[in-house]
Design a protein around this nucleic acid. Structure first.
Lengths: 272, 272
DNA sequence: TGCGACCATATTGTAGGACAATATGCAAGC
DNA sequence: GCTTGCATATTGTCCTACAATATGGTCGCA
């Protein structure tokens, strides 16, 4: 049978290369090394399929309401077995992106059903260049979440959690390049969320992470003064240490607003 | 030791025949009619497995770090094929609850990796009686999210969105029993989140829904004055209509705080 | 002619068996 | 004692077959 030969040859190829037969030559493995918190490591085959289809859906190539090809042909196009495809579909379904029903097929769900806070979904939205509108929404989330988290942390954080905050701050202070600073910055904001002792709050880190990551990307060119927000962080840290929730809230709000203003200025410059 | 419990609880119905594995037709109608936003309808077989295992993990029966039986035996215990079990595993994995690796097996992940904002995970946490601590966290989330959402809605909501708010309020006003009121109440709070025009904010409805649902359960016995918070809702609605973000924020905060106080009082009464 | 019931059919859902890939832990060799 | 390599257990992937299900058209009936 031709099936056999096809299978034997195509298997190793599909893993490494991007030689998709008919699908638009989408770059699957974009150079992104940074991984979001709960994101799929894309090590497995079906992980790749999840990534590929998820990105196409969130990216708008596959529109809500659209009916996907049936599993058999879609599996052929992706060069995986129907089994692997179905496992990927279950994941996408769990993220609210698609809905499968017997006889009718699998269709892309309306955006209001998408799990927008899912780390993968957030990541896919930033796959290319995030839209101005999306950045605005991310910042709005930060303005809501982080000041409240800082206040809660000031009230309830433990000694260990304060130590982690200290460590993150020290790492930011000691950072020699943008990469090191970005890592420490993320750790700091994660530590604040964790210090609330509310795991629901902490789960919003996926949003913060995406927002900060976007900010780093947008501000990559002016990397010389990347430490400009260190004083803001210090104020937050000190307020938490002194158990002053209101001061912590205000300091954090100033930090977020400052970062937003900075980004907007930068965007205007880029346009001009 | 866990093996035994896994087997006995699972799918009591499907024990009938060995030759006809497909006896899982009914058993879908568990008293719950209301379904959470993105929750799995549990119509499929693997949906059942997801529900079953997810509940056991979140419920603490299967502890973080614990190694699950290998797929083949687990599939036997659940009386499904390995295929179906694996599809369920992929979903649980997407929710951050488990992690599978070749040769080592599938183990329950630490709680910090769980997607706590996932509608299913939230639901499973409330499967029995939610702990006092969990209720506290839910209320804290409401205090952070809803006032901010109300303020944003006052700034940006469209005419259609305001109409939906009006409709929800009217339905609350007209509600004759607790069920009707609960439904309208949910619709109101969802409308507020949608009126922010920020889908990230709107995705937090799963949390609000869980919090309100818990509140309804806890306050079921004093159902006579279930409309006591109508004036609060009216104030929020009017503030949004008049485009007064600060007033909307304050009104919403009062509503949440009032509902918390109410619940705490009730809890004290129940204890005494 | 209008309408409801029924059946053909296309698609997903489930099962089961086979083999490949992978990481662990032990054993052998230096 | 340390490293290296192999045996092995478990997940990962593929394949095939069939059952369940919902759609849409067709047939029967009033």
């Amino acid at each position: 049978m031709t099936n056999k030969t096809i299978k034997e040859v195509s298997r190793p190829v599909a893993k490494v290369a991007v030689a998709k037969p008919m699908t638009a030559g989408k770059r699957a493995a974009s150079g992104k090394t940074r991984r979001a918190v709960g994101s799929t490591p894309t090590r497995n085959l079906h992980g790749h399929v999840v990534h590929e289809l998820g990105q196409r859906i969130v990216g708008g190539e596959l529109r809500p309401g659209e009916l996907l090809p049936r599993e058999e042909t879609l599996a052929e196009q992706m060069e995986v077995s129907r089994t692997a495809l179905r496992e990927a579909m279950k994941v996408l379904s769990a993220k609210g992106l698609v809905e499968s029903r017997p006889k009718v097929g699998t269709r892309v769900r309306d955006t209001r059903f998408w799990h927008q806070l899912d780390a993968d979904v957030l990541g896919w939205r930033c796959a290319l260049m995030p839209t101005e509108d999306f950045v605005r929404k991310l910042v709005e989330m930060r303005e809501v979440i982080e000041p409240a988290a800082a206040a809660a942390a000031a009230v309830r954080c433990s000694v260990e959690q304060l130590e982690r905050l200290d460590a993150a701050y020290a790492a930011m202070d000691a950072a020699k390049d943008l990469d090191a600073w970005a890592e420490a910055d993320l750790a700091f904001h994660e530590a604040v969320l964790n210090a609330t002792n509310n795991e629901l709050m902490a789960s919003l880190f996926s949003v913060i992470e995406t927002a900060l990551g976007t900010f780093f990307v947008l501000s990559a060119r002016t990397a010389k003064d990347f430490k400009y927000s260190l004083p803001h962080h210090q104020k937050v840290l000190e307020a938490i240490r002194r158990r002053q929730p209101d001061a912590a809230r205000r300091a954090m709000l100033r930090m977020v607003d400052d970062s937003r203003a900075n980004m907007e200025k930068r965007r205007r410059n880029a346009k001009a």
